[in-house]
Nucleic acid binder design. Structure first.
Lengths: 151, 151
DNA sequence: TCTAAATACTTGTATATACAACTATTGATT
DNA sequence: AATCAATAGTTGTATATACAAGTATTTAGA
């Protein structure tokens, strides 16, 4: 479905303007697909992202601000996100002995087991994204990176 | 700044996978720029979007669900969004006489005046998006539309 | 005409973002 | 050692999304 149909608009000021809307619309669309898949496992895309970050460093712990800096979405909410994962016993929190300001987070076995079950999520995304060739995807990445230059 | 630096990740499973993350990251980045600009005018990007939709149809009123269907972001929240604009006297709500289930929304003069002041927002976005040539933007739109095909 | 279904919108709850103000701890300066 | 600034997190408030359940009104069918 074209963007014009999706948001019932038939003209944009320019291709560039349309592209801005298209990026945001497609992002929201991707997020929605992800969310609805992950919901069956009682987890949100944001929580899923944190779990993957922690698996990436496992068995090394990460301090909260390290988790935050690796998050895709803005990370002001990191404390509360991690707290929700802790309540589900998917991660562990502990005050760092060397620096008691610091909170170290690690993924639990239960968290690792859950992630294993969620490998299908990767396939789902792959199914969508592989509509683009590797060359196209590279081009897309180039353009998006270019937009974020400077500023 | 490259995506790798932005989210402190140095490898992705594929260019396609990276593109998915890049779309969501760039969307969030665009939203943030917009939000911080609009904040000075005590309005959010979502509310701004609704105002522009209403200016587009002005002086014709739109029923709530028509507004919703034109929104970029998901529209389950339309009632509350419009209510916030109404509290600021930027839009007007009235029950439709012919069909009392229906709520007709229109932009007020105050809303139109505010939008005029916000034309600079368009320039701000233009400044960012014009880093892409028209050809590039067209290509970007083609790729994003392709991702959303079917599914 | 009475009832059931469809339509249009509203409201409640859980989750998330943004931002600002706050606490606690550590490091640095005098 | 005492103080001040920097660092690391936490918490409160406003806004937004998603979803589900709710109300009110209209339409369609028996």
């Amino acid at each position: 479905m074209s963007l014009e149909d999706d948001i019932k608009q038939d003209k944009f000021q320019s291709e560039q303007h349309k592209a801005a809307i298209n990026i945001m619309f497609t992002s929201s669309w991707l997020h929605g697909i992800n969310a609805s898949y992950l919901k069956k496992f009682d987890i949100t895309p944001e929580q899923f992202n944190v779990l993957r970050i922690l698996r990436g460093s496992h068995p090394k712990k990460l301090m909260l601000s390290e988790v935050a800096s690796r998050m895709i979405d803005k990370s002001s909410n990191c404390t509360r996100l991690v707290e929700k994962l802790r309540q589900k016993a998917l991660v562990q929190r502990e005050i760092c002995k060397d620096n008691r300001r610091q909170v170290d987070i690690s993924i639990t076995d239960k968290g690792l087991t859950l992630l294993k079950k969620l490998d299908a999520e990767a396939s789902l995304m792959k199914g969508i994204m592989d509509k683009l060739s590797k060359t196209d995807a590279k081009e897309l990445n180039r353009m998006l990176d270019k937009l974020r230059e400077d500023n």
